[in-house]
Design a protein around this nucleic acid. Structure first.
Lengths: 183, 183
DNA sequence: CCCAAGTGAGACACAAATGTCTCACCTGAT
DNA sequence: ATCAGGTGAGACATTTGTGTCTCACTTGGG
């Protein structure tokens, strides 16, 4: 009976990531609830987006925690991170796309902290000699988000099997397309 | 005096890729023209987006032609493709993000053709033994778009120098982050 | 069985964006 | 200098989305 707030947010993210101009009514329909009910839980579109950001930050934070980025080989940590991040795919692909000038200091701070943690992982990998040093940690972080977003979309549109998500992303991110041998 | 249609479309793409809910008025301001003038050139928001898609398809087609994907080593062709595609970054990052259910058969067909050409390049690379065969051409194509989008975005926000765009994308796409040695 | 909480559907007023029009202005060509 | 084409600014009606409210219905607990 009672609406599952999290489930509403997830379906909203899935819809908005593909059609960011979707109406509140469309968001409600996509969640299988009425517009009035959607409004009871989120004061307006802005509040909805805020809630999505908040949830995204929290869940990504949790995923990063679970991945234990500071432990073991950096590449193994990346594998764990991608695995943990998979369920957040649609949400993250929406949030990265919705960069709209972060005026909110609060959210901005949250993202900065997450970026720093991911970035630190790549830097650690470089210091360990596991990752190349000609690709900056900042860029690897961007690329990580980009690939996760691309993967989430591809899964959503049926162009990629969900169970391949992790493998495809990790392998491309770590090893690249080239078959090779040596560099 | 006369408005440069292409320049308007480019600035619109740059704005809309970051704030997809931007008003027609905001789009006009971003292009440095009046709302009425914007309206004289594009009947409405839908027409504007259509025009963006059309331009994106045409320019990507041209970029693919210029890159001569069928010639030489597949990895060199990828390098050429990324180089040609660089100026289209913001436009492409908008278009991939605005996946909104392609009802238009016309546009859909255009994208399918482009996807096929890029995909064919990756398949050729696999057949040449240059690319890994465990990453599907379809996924490599998705990843290509994703990385170009991420790169365009990072450049736009000043997190990546424009002159590094090509190198960072190509190197990650082809070689991956791992420092490596052998696989 | 009854009640309370939560919900969907719809009505409604309000706010915002859109599409159209007019008019004064500027600019480049004649 | 004049003129025609194109433009920016603003006014305006229309459309669209938003936010609020009511009411009947369903569901789960007492």
């Amino acid at each position: 009976m009672t609406v599952d707030r999290t489930q509403v947010l997830r379906s909203a993210a899935a819809l908005l990531s593909r059609k960011s101009t979707a109406t509140m009514d469309e968001v409600a329909r996509a969640a299988g609830i009425g517009r009035a009910t959607l409004h009871r839980h989120f004061a307006g579109r802005e509040a909805l987006v805020r809630a999505l950001e908040e949830m995204g930050i929290q869940e990504l934070e949790a995923a990063i925690d679970a991945a234990a980025l500071d432990e073991g080989q950096a590449d193994d940590a990346v594998r764990r991170l991608v695995a943990e991040v998979e369920p957040l795919g649609p949400l993250l692909s929406f949030l990265v796309g919705e960069n709209q000038l972060f005026e909110g200091d609060q959210q901005n701070e949250g993202w900065a902290r997450l970026d720093a943690r991911v970035s630190r992982l790549f830097r650690r990998g470089q210091e360990q000699g596991v990752f190349r040093i000609d690709l900056t940690p900042a860029w690897l972080t961007e690329a990580f988000y980009g690939l996760v977003g691309a993967g989430a979309w591809a899964v959503q549109d049926g162009r990629l099997a969900a169970k391949e998500f992790q493998y495809m992303i990790v392998e491309l991110l770590l090893g690249g397309a080239r078959r090779s041998v040596e560099k």
